[in-house]
Design a binder for these strands. Structure first.
Lengths: 150, 150
DNA sequence: CAGATTAGTTAGCATAGCTAACTAAAGTGT
DNA sequence: ACACTTTAGTTAGCTATGCTAACTAATCTG
């Protein structure tokens, strides 16, 4: 057997874990999207808005990088958020740049979405044990770490 | 405080976990999509194909349900897969229904995608400890259980 | 066999991803 | 000072994916 990087983490199991994680992420988002649609705000818009709400104001380029999309894509996402009055654009010293900031309405919409999402998740979590609840929290942290290294 | 369903799983923590899980899923898929684009097959097509490859042949309606999308959406996804020769359509007794089956080419494409995905994931996993590797597998299972109840 | 139900498609709309090509502003070098 | 390059963002145009409404065709039911 040549070229095995992982120490006692079998190749086949890694394949399977990657597949299942991929599939789980797809299906999780499809479910949550159903609830998020009630807000009338698309998933990409909601995600970008959440960066502005929880991470504070920033430029379009920074937002694009945070969301891992190209500038033209973020340009259109922000245009939609502005049209709905969820985000405002301010001038900066560097007149090429814009400073994007969530509006009060944007913050409110996001919190409502959060609430709907947690309602769905809470329902799904009801079948889990106390211990599993806590493991899920750890899992998310582990997952975030994995994503940062991706 | 009124109306707290969860037994010692604080409301605020549930909110945060839901948010982070949501965000993590979005970012995970964005990263994996970069690799998946190399296959020339879209994410929805890839996911549907994987159901046919690993779950065996089935009708369009069954596939739509498995993928949690509406029949017209799956109709178009399958049309794309057929156009690329990754899926074939066969007649059944009930002539309204179709039997969808992955082609040899479809199976090959999927396995190549799997390989790319696991390469990315393996790289990301390299920073995790031995123990965390194993936990990740368990956590994915837990996540699948949560999604089933969603 | 008429009417209801079921499976899938077609049409039309919106969001979201991309690249290529553009404008405008800021930085750089001679 | 001024031409050139670089950087920030937008516009145009393509594809893929989601949806609902409305359609066709086949099957079931009374």
């Amino acid at each position: 057997m040549a070229n095995v990087k992982s120490k006692s983490f079998p190749e086949g199991k890694a394949f399977e874990t990657a597949d299942r994680l991929h599939s789980a992420a797809i299906h999780l988002l499809r479910r949550l999207r159903v609830r998020d649609r009630e807000s009338g705000v698309g998933p990409a818009q909601l995600s970008a808005l959440s960066v502005l709400v929880f991470g504070g104001p920033r430029s379009l380029g920074e937002l694009a990088e945070a969301e891992q999309v190209r500038p033209p894509t973020m340009s259109r996402i922000v245009a939609g958020l502005e049209r709905e009055g969820l985000v405002r654009r301010h001038a900066t010293d560097d007149r090429r740049r814009v400073r994007l900031e969530a509006s009060a309405k944007g913050i409110k919409i996001l919190q409502q979405g959060r609430k709907r999402r947690v309602e769905s998740l809470a329902k799904a979590l009801s079948s889990l044990s106390e211990k599993e609840h806590q493991q899920l929290g750890d899992f998310v942290e582990l997952l975030q770490q994995v994503i940062r290294n991706l």
